[in-house]
């Protein structure tokens, strides 16, 4: 069954057509360019932009996914269900996607599947191209880690429907911490890629040894606000010229602190749960250095490791479609689509 998926949880307007784990189309209308001047997600613009772009993005996803040059009715005829992100995310942004999904479902008499954005990030690791490659089978259970601007969560995926969050951040997400460190140093949004470049340039050295929050705690919780404070304090009194001179090393050390915590906590979770397959999704895993660390960890712990394609690390609708496919196999459709509402703090 082909699924048309929509995601408007934050600053991406996204739509995709998937069949099983195969991605037939994946369209993003990235708003990064629009946001950059203000240094972050710009909420009202995001809502307006979602509203302005969603129809065109959906149309493009259908054109690429089921063939262009045909009427919308014909295209929707090939679609079995409409999937949409219900949360977590920004309420006013989520609303746009949900409204669009409801309208499409009603107009073309399709069932609706409500998807948790976080499940999407986990399923991004299992995506296949149009030809069904790579063709490894899904073999539950997995340990999942979502590491993005808005989330840092360790999840045990028992099967297609059963998730258990075993660790999450108590305050800031890992990606948010990186963004804020970049901003403290006067760099633009998004901060992650800039930090990656600067850290690369100094060989990922860790000259400053910033604190590794929660590393010695016995649970699987994360906390990055203390690290942010330590960093703030460290650079606060520094003259601008010195800050600039030390910029790559400061940010490299900051990145090392964040990554060390991610790796160590994941290692602890693997040992505790005794799971042998690890899936890491979310925007921060676009970082090549972090991928290296996870590969090392997987070798060391003797586990299988799954990453999304780089193009699927950030928010996208293809991952929502893949997660929706699992729900559809278990007939988990929304019983009353008209009553479907966004849940901004939806948990897994």
């Amino acid at each position: 069954m082909k699924i048309l998926a929509i995601d408007t949880s934050a600053d991406e307007t996204a739509s995709a057509v998937v069949e099983g784990r195969r991605i037939l189309s994946n369209v993003l209308y990235s708003q990064i360019e629009l946001h950059r001047p203000w240094g972050g997600i710009y909420p009202a613009l995001a809502k307006r932009a979602h509203e302005q772009r969603i129809d065109a993005v959906v149309k493009k996803a259908l054109d690429r996914g089921v063939g262009a040059g045909r009427s919308m009715t014909k295209q929707m005829g090939e679609i079995g269900a409409v999937a949409v992100t219900q949360g977590p995310g920004l309420a006013v942004a989520l609303e746009v996607g949900i409204k669009t999904a409801k309208t499409l479902a009603q107009t073309y008499a399709k069932p609706v599947i409500a998807v948790n954005h976080l499940a999407g990030h986990l399923y991004s690791c299992f995506a296949q191209n149009r030809n069904g490659k790579p063709d490894f089978p899904l073999r539950f259970p997995y340990l999942g880690l979502i590491v993005s601007g808005g989330h840092t969560e360790l999840v045990v995926m028992r099967d297609e429907l059963k998730y258990e969050v075993v660790g999450q951040t108590r305050d800031d997400a890992a990606g948010e911490a990186l963004d804020k460190a970049a901003k403290l140093m006067g760099l633009g949004y998004p901060g992650g890629p800039v930090i990656e470049r600067l850290a690369d340039s100094v060989g990922h050295q860790d000259q400053y040894r910033f604190p590794r929050p929660m590393l010695n705690a016995r649970d699987l919780s994360f906390s990055f606000s203390g690290l942010k404070t330590a960093f703030y304090y460290f650079v606060k009194e520094m003259p601008a010229s010195e800050k600039n001179r030390r910029l790559p090393h400061l940010l490299s050390s900051f990145q090392e602190a964040v990554f060390t915590v991610l790796i160590k906590k994941t290692q602890l979770a693997l040992r505790r749960t005794k799971l042998t397959r690890l899936a890491v999704g979310g925007g921060v895993i676009a970082n090549r250095h972090l991928r290296r660390y996870f590969r090392q960890l997987a070798r060391q712990e003797g586990v299988e490791l799954y990453f999304p394609y780089k193009s699927l690390t950030g928010d996208n609708a293809a991952m929502i479609g893949i997660a929706a496919g699992c729900l559809a196999r278990h007939s988990r459709f929304v019983t009353d689509p008209a009553a479907l509402d966004r849940v901004p703090r939806l948990a897994l």
């Binding site: 997600i41 942004a93 808005g150 108590r170 800031d172 606000s225 942010k228 304090y233 901004p344």
Partner: peptide, 28 residues
């Protein structure tokens, strides 16, 4: 940045029985 605004908000949440307040920076 880092002064403890989110921590304060967590305390406000706990006062009314909400114990899963996290930073809303990313989603506003």
């Amino acid at each position: 940045l880092g002064a403890g605004k989110t921590v304060f908000a967590q305390g406000v949440g706990e006062a009314v029985g909400v114990d899963n307040v996290v930073s809303p920076t990313f989603t506003v």
